[in-house]
């Protein structure tokens, strides 16, 4: 749908590593993706896969004396990786905004919520206090906060978790950014609230035409909202494509494993939810070649060399993956009775 719209973000070969006491952590390894206006890109992976580090690197929030960056991340014409502190400050919130995982701690407990949003608006625009206040009240109403005029003066601890996440969303929208990054925006919330927040994000995307990056560990969450999906494992994107491509023709065994662990309402519930055996690898000493190799039941000698991220399915240029097996053998290995899993037939072990 978004093929012809404006290209907002072009990330190429992004690498991020951190020096720690235990050694060098290669948190993000050769990550490339594009984001267009009005598009929702879901970045999916377990914790430790580098998805949050990628998101925060785009905001310049991972910069520290211990961090090294490589590659580029162009927001329109500005490379976010090499941008100076002042340039970065100018685009933060103004062009690229972020919603964080835990709304309980992401707001300053000592400031009234309204002021916290006004602070952001006034950092970028020359607006009077009164005008900013009206603008914030309108924003709060737009994200579904009732009695917004009263709530403007509330402290964060006086609001519920879902309410606070709405405040965070209002804050992120206040400068009408072109790119909105939502880092696990619903993980810390109740299930019913999760649905509401996702609904809100979906609606806002349509109305503002912003490009949205939705970072999550839950593939189930993104089925409805995402246009494209990038699956991350141990610092690398192992597969990316449209939502349909990922759900109906997944190429990487790790994606199969993720899909296999979703509970599906249209099928009888299995006795035991299939999960991927083993643990994600250490990012200090990652396995040679394919990072998923130690956990992959289909691994063979070819997996010992570093696999490239490229299109392997005939005719689908946007569908890229890092698994060297042929699409035909993949189809054979992943499915039994139309149910996708890491091993055909579901439960492993």
């Amino acid at each position: 749908m978004a093929r012809h719209s404006e290209l907002l973000l072009d990330v190429r070969d992004l690498r991020v590593c951190f020096a720690t006491e235990e050694g060098i952590v290669q948190a993000v390894d050769e990550v490339s993706f594009k984001l267009h206006a009005g598009e929702v890109l879901a970045v999916v992976g377990e914790s430790g896969s580098g998805k949050s580090v990628t998101a925060m690197t785009l905001m310049g929030l991972t910069r520290s004396p211990n961090a090294r960056f490589d590659g580029s991340a162009k927001l329109r014409d500005l490379d976010l990786v090499t941008a100076g502190d002042d340039e970065l400050r100018g685009v933060r919130a103004e062009q690229i905004a972020m919603i964080f995982q835990d709304p309980m701690t992401a707001l300053n407990p000592l400031h009234r919520i309204g002021r916290q949003i006004v602070e952001q608006i006034q950092a970028h625009r020359d607006v009077s206090d009164g005008a900013a206040r009206d603008q914030v009240v309108a924003l709060l109403e737009r994200v579904g906060i009732a009695r917004a005029r009263e709530r403007y003066d509330a402290f964060p601890h006086e609001l519920s978790g879902g309410m606070r996440q709405r405040v965070m969303i209002a804050m992120a929208l206040s400068c009408e950014p072109a790119v909105l990054i939502a880092d696990e925006p619903t993980t810390a919330l109740d299930v019913t609230i999760q649905a509401q927040i996702l609904e809100l994000l979906k609606e806002l995307r349509t109305r503002t035409n912003a490009g949205v990056i939705l970072v999550t560990h839950d593939l189930g969450v993104v089925a409805e909202i995402a246009d494209r999906i990038a699956v991350m494992y141990a610092g690398r994107i192992v597969e990316q494509g449209t939502t349909d491509e990922i759900f109906y023709n997944p190429q990487h065994p790790y994606t199969w494993g993720l899909l296999g662990s979703i509970t599906r309402v249209d099928r009888p519930r299995p006795d035991r939810l299939p999960s991927i055996p083993g643990l994600p690898p250490s990012l200090i000493r990652p396995p040679r070649g394919c990072h998923f190799r130690p956990r992959c039941p289909h691994a063979h000698d070819a997996c010992l060399s570093r696999p490239e991220l490229r299109a392997r399915v005939a005719g689908a240029t946007g569908h890229e993956d890092r698994c060297v097996m042929s699409p035909e053998s993949k189809r054979e290995l992943r499915e039994a009775d139309g149910q996708i899993g890491l091993v055909a037939g579901g439960v492993t072990q």
Binding site: M59, L61, A97, T105, A123
Partner: peptide, 22 residues
Amino acid sequence: NDDYVRTARAKGLSERRVMIHH
């Protein structure tokens, strides 16, 4: 290390304002 300081930076505030206000 607190999350709201990260939020303050993400808001595009100047480092000075982040340090003093947050």
